[in-house]
Computed example of a mutant assay.
Amino acid sequence: MKDVAARAGVGLKTVSRVVNEEAGVTPDTVARVQAAIDALGFRRNDSARLLRTKRTASIGLVLEDLADPFYAALSRAVEDVARTHGALLFTGSSAEDPRREQELVLAFCARRVDGLVVVPASDDHRYLSPEIDAGVATVFVDRPAGKLDVDVVLTDNAGGTRDGIAHLIAHGHRRIGFIGDLPGIHTAGERLRGYQEAMAAAGLPIRPDWCSMGPTTPERVRGALAAMLAGPEPVTALFAGNNRVTVTAVRVLSARPKPIALVGFDDFELADLLDPAVTVVAQDAPGMGRSAAQLLFRRLDGITSEEPHRVELPARLIPRGSGEIPPS
């Protein structure tokens, strides 16, 4: 830095401000310092910075599957907020495996990340208590932490599902099926609750063969939907508990001669271009990622005395055609 300062004709503090993108330096001075940095091949020593600030300017994000469009949008929003704070984002996918989640979380902590944003796979996160006590800021998103009281950002899953079921009821449906994810997953359980509450509020029965929870593999979803459509009282409408279920349902229903109404939780790419376009209950994935990251940096900026925050964002019904098909 001394060489850079000498070449640019400024003091060491000015070089430090330029390198750390601090305010109070004129554009002309910034240009001269940057030119000196480029000419000398100067690179910031992050190890020295860590010793001085006790911060690594990095955070870790653990989610279910980065290939899922929902989590990709959430991740991008976290990264955007991290970038405005001059922090680097490390990301890993747990594949809904609690052991993999713990391995990733502890690996990030071993690399001295300043904070964590976690989409949980586990139902017990007490293993994180020593890391949090050591100063690692932690925010959970999409699902709450298990047995740990920390900041969390959620979607109103039950409320969004109630709106979707009410929409089908308003279009004349009384036999409405529900296919969801594994019941132990928080979001799946909340969406099932929303379905049950909406049906009960309308005074409608729920037959056991109208509701199926389990893995969202295409084989399982096809079998569940086939059973609902083949029974003595087949469903006339389906609520799909997430975008993977919806995609499989679209493939099955497109091959049937009689149309079946469909509403899916989570939007997905090209949903508006299908025929009919798919009615969905959409989450605000960027909003969730942004809110979680902002909470995290609020803690990193020293706001540690507040009680844990619980932020719940609304879901939004987007009618497009498939949910407006009347019973046949």
Rank of each mutant, 00 (worst) to 15 (best):
G264Q: 00
A224C: 09
S322L: 00
A249D: 07
L317S: 04
A292I: 04
F297E: 01
L253C: 00
A271V: 04
L270Q: 13
A230C: 11
P314Y: 05
E219N: 08
R298T: 13
D284V: 02
D266Y: 02
V252R: 05
P319G: 06
R244G: 07
A277P: 05
D272R: 15
T217A: 12
L300Y: 10
T248F: 03
Q294W: 09
D266H: 04
A271Y: 00
V250G: 08
M228V: 05
R256C: 13
M228L: 09
L295H: 04
F265M: 07
A277H: 05
G231I: 08
R251V: 12
E312V: 15
Q294T: 15
V278S: 06
F265Y: 12
F265R: 03
V247I: 15
V281F: 02
Q283D: 07
P286Q: 05
T216V: 15
R251D: 15
A285S: 11
P276G: 06
R310W: 08
V263P: 03
L270K: 09
P308W: 04
T279P: 00
R222E: 15
R298D: 12
L317Q: 05
S291E: 11
D301C: 10
P234E: 09
L274K: 00
P234Y: 10
R310T: 15
A261T: 03
A315F: 00
R320T: 05
P319Y: 00
A240L: 03
A271L: 06
L262D: 01
T248R: 01
S322D: 07
F297C: 08
S254H: 12
A227C: 12
D284P: 04
G241A: 07
E233S: 14
V263G: 01
R256W: 11
R251G: 12
R251H: 14
P257I: 07
L274S: 07
F268N: 01
R220I: 12
S291R: 10
V281E: 07
A226W: 13
G302V: 06
R222Q: 13
Q283A: 14
T246K: 01
L274Y: 13
H309Y: 13
A271F: 03
S212R: 13
L253E: 10
T236H: 02
T279L: 03
A237Q: 01
A255K: 12
N242L: 03
L313I: 08
A285F: 05
G214K: 01
T217R: 08
T248Q: 10
G302A: 06
A237S: 02
G287P: 03
T279V: 02
L229R: 04
N243V: 09
V250F: 04
F268V: 05
A227E: 15
D275N: 13
R220L: 13
P234I: 07
R290K: 13
T246L: 02
M288H: 06
G287L: 08
R320W: 01
F268T: 05
E233N: 13
R244M: 10
I318C: 09
L274W: 11
L262P: 03
D275Y: 14
L300H: 07
F239Y: 11
A285P: 08
A261Y: 01
A226E: 15
M213W: 01
L274C: 08
V250M: 10
V280A: 01
